[in-house]
Amino acid sequence: MDNLTHSLVGALLGQAGLKRKTGLAMPTLIIAANIPDIDAVAVLLGGSQHLALRRGITHGPIAMVVLPLLLWGIMLWFDRWQTRRGKRPESRLPVDTKWLLALAYIGCLSHPLFDWFNSYGIRLLEPFSSQWFYGDTIFIIDIWLWCALIAGVWLSLRGERRGRQNWRTPALVSMSTIFAYIAANGLITGRAEQLTGNAVQSQFGVVPAMVVANPVPVQFWKREMLWRDATHYGQGSFSVPDAVSLDPKIGKHNMGDAEAVAQMARDKNADAFLFWSRMPVLREQVHGSSNVRVLSDQRFGNPLVQDRFTVAVPAENPEK
């Protein structure tokens, strides 16, 4: 998910009552909810190499143990540093070391949970396994999730400032609504994939090896449907409750061309892309007087983002 969502999740946890457990609770929850994204520095490598590094080691089990400990140590140091300098706010609660550590873990663990909900992918077991996991449940930037999170945090803060005893209630209601929303979207995805698989068999006479219900922006009741078998791929759409529409045009993804794939893998950007890609498509195109092989991913076929998720490599001349 985007970092605004992660930050709001941390803030909502605080407004649900956790902020009263110890001093520095709210900043710890918000920072912890974002800290696994320290792997974002990988974008400095350029090209597509960052795709193979993101959502991996810093989102895996070792990081989930180590990162909260590091943050805990930094927050304890910060509190003591402010105290020595006479800068510690008088209104800050005393720091409870056990609760501060617990909140660092709670905030940090919320990050891979929410990252898993979208179709981009996350390696939850890295470095023990490089398997990608996909929730296919909500879009990577979900405006309805934003609305629920912002409403819960804002209403809770307003109630707290007005001295209301039930100031935690809006945050708790928001939290319950969010998980009900996510669960409902999970059911929509399951229904969409089942019906689309049946429709592909009926319309094209093939049993798809993979069917993915790709969440779309704003319209949570719809899915972009993607499917493929050993040689072909296609797409379509789904809308609640059971409206499936398949594009009659299908194409060859060419991932069975072992020689071409091996050639692509010799390029560091293409190799990283192949490691990350879930539904790769390989095409050969003519650019001027030379041919290039282009890798893309079905999940990111939208023209607005397609250029960010493609790799082009000059085709090798088989006669050389």
Rank of each mutant, 00 (worst) to 15 (best):
F275W: 05
Q298A: 15
K252V: 14
S296A: 10
E259N: 07
M279K: 05
M264E: 13
R278A: 14
H253R: 09
H287D: 07
Q263N: 12
K268A: 14
A265E: 14
N269Y: 02
S289N: 08
A272M: 08
L274T: 07
F273I: 00
A258I: 11
H253L: 06
Q298C: 13
N269I: 02
M255C: 13
N269M: 00
S296C: 02
F273G: 11
N291Y: 04
A258N: 10
S296M: 05
D267I: 11
M279N: 13
A260R: 14
N254G: 06
R266Q: 10
S290Q: 03
W276R: 08
A258L: 11
H253K: 12
D257W: 00
N254P: 04
V292T: 07
E284I: 15
H287T: 09
D271L: 10
V292N: 01
A260K: 15
H287N: 06
V281K: 00
N291L: 08
V281C: 08
F275V: 14
A270V: 07
M255T: 13
R283E: 15
H253C: 10
A265Q: 15
G256K: 04
A270K: 08
A265N: 12
A270P: 08
M255F: 14
A272S: 15
D257G: 07
A260L: 15
A270H: 10
H287M: 01
E259D: 12
K252P: 03
N254M: 09
N269W: 05
H253T: 06
A262N: 12
D297H: 12
Q263F: 01
G256E: 09
E259Y: 03
M279E: 13
F273D: 13
R266Y: 00
L295M: 07
A258S: 12
N291R: 08
A262D: 14
H253G: 07
D267P: 03
L274E: 05
K252Q: 13
M264Q: 12
E284K: 03
A260G: 04
V294D: 06
S290L: 01
E259M: 00
L295W: 11
V261A: 11
V261K: 11
V292P: 02
E284P: 02
L295G: 07
